[in-house]
Each structure stands twice: as C-alpha cells, then as structure tokens.
C-alpha cells in the first residue's frame, strides 16, 4: 500500500514540477492516438453504417468478422505492421518504421474494427426506427446511411471514445513499430513498460496515474462538448 501512496505523491510532484520531457511524451501519446482515432472514424463510421443498412451477400459474415476483430491482440497488429513497414517488407522503401507515423498506422488498424462495429450497432438501431420514413422519401441506401450517421452523430461519440481509449492504452503495437526510441517514439505506455523493466515500480505506477488522469480529463471534456453540442443543435 505504501508503494501506491508513494506513486501518487510522485505523480503529483512530476506534474507540478512541469517536467518538459514528460510533457513531450504525453503530447506524443495524445497526438498519435488522436490521429489514429480520427482516421479510424473516417474509415470505420461509413463502413459501419453501410454494414448496418446494406443488403449484400456476405454482410453477416462481415459483421461477425468486425465484431471479432475488436479483440485483435495489439502485439499481432504491431507485428503485421512491422513486417509491412520493415525495409525487407512491401512498404519498406518509405522508411516509416520507428516513426510516429508507423504508430498511427498500427493504432488505426487496431481500432478501426472497434469504431466500425460500434457504429454498425448504433446505425442498425436507427435504421430500424427510420427505415420506413427514409424509404418513403425515396432515399437510396447510401443516402440513408449518410442521413443516419448525421442523425446519430452524438451517439457515435462513444464509438470514437472507445477507439481512442483502446489506442492510448495499448503498448504492444507501438512498442514494436515505434521501437520506444527516446525523444522520437517513446509514449506513455512504452515509458511505463521501460520503467517497469528497470524495476522502478513507483515511477512506472506514477506514470500510469498520470496517463489515467489524462484519459479521464479527455473523456470529461468530450462529455461536456457533447452536452453543449446537443443543447445547441440537438
């Protein structure tokens, strides 16, 4: 128990001291995971909506596949992206391995299925409710998907947050494709893993406390933003 109290104190000290290296690591974590979340929303939300309203062969199979891919192990994603981006791999010529871009790619692969699957669920419910109405207006399925996405925009916030949460918390993928290079690709989770390796458990836990606090703050901000937007345009 003493260790946990120490870690809390240490975390407070680090934050109040305004350590610039710590700030840079937190900033990189946020930048990478925000970018990945954004890209996966742009890919996953339309995909989820089409899966919800579309009627094409293999749709059910795709639904199951995306649900299943929500459980993708980060290490496997990391390994796949590593093999793709490695100099000996098909995309090796771009030299992206061990860069923040590689980390964004890995996290995007990891969380797009989550965003897509959750979007499909939300849109499917909407579709059930508004199907007749949209049909009577003569809307095509693509048009319907777009309308429903717009209608459900506030509920889809949760899908985006779920993706973000997964992205910022994972360590397996970014460790492999980023390489945990000091000052270049070192993020919160890889720093925590490194400090654990060094046996500096209080420091590792303190960093964990900071990470959780940052994630909570972002969720609170997102919640407030959603409330505000709903009041204004809802």
């Amino acid at each position: 128990m003493a260790e946990i109290t120490n870690s809390l104190l240490l975390a407070t000290d680090m934050v109040t001291a305004g350590d610039s290296r710590l700030a840079a690591i937190v900033a990189l974590s946020l930048a990478v995971s925000f970018s990945a979340t954004l890209i996966s929303c742009l890919l996953g939300m339309p995909l989820g909506a089409l899966l919800a309203v579309g009627r094409f062969p293999g749709r059910r199979v795709l639904v199951v596949i995306f649900n299943g891919l929500m459980g993708l192990p980060p290490v496997v994603v990391g390994l796949l992206v590593y093999l793709l981006l490695s100099r000996a791999g098909p995309l090796g010529q771009f030299g992206l391995l061990f860069t923040p871009t590689a980390m964004v790619i890995a996290q995007t692969v990891l969380i797009t299925p989550i965003v897509a699957a959750l979007t499909r669920q939300v849109i499917e419910d909407e579709w059930r409710e508004y199907r007749e109405q949209l049909r009577s207006l003569g809307a095509s399925r693509t048009r319907a998907a777009r309308t429903l996405l717009w209608n459900a925009r506030f509920s889809l916030f949760t899908a985006a947050l779920a993706g973000f949460g997964r992205a910022i918390a994972e360590v397996g993928a970014v460790m492999i494709v980023g390489g945990n290079i000091d000052g270049v690709t070192r993020v919160m989770t890889t720093t925590i893993a490194l400090e654990t390796s060094k046996g500096d458990l209080p420091l590792a836990l303190a960093l964990g406390v900071i990470l959780i606090t940052v994630v909570l703050a972002i969720n609170a901000a997102a919640y407030a933003l959603r409330q505000w937007a709903e009041n204004r345009w809802g």
Binding site: A31, F34, S35, L38, T99, P100, T101, V104, V184
Partner: peptide
C-alpha cells in the same frame, strides 16, 4: 492531425 503527421515527418 495532418499538421501533426507533417511535423512528425519533418522531424
């Protein structure tokens, strides 16, 4: 996010 990726690639 584009700006971030740009900065990252400049880096």
């Amino acid at each position: 996010s584009c700006a971030f990726l740009l900065v990252a690639s400049l880096h």
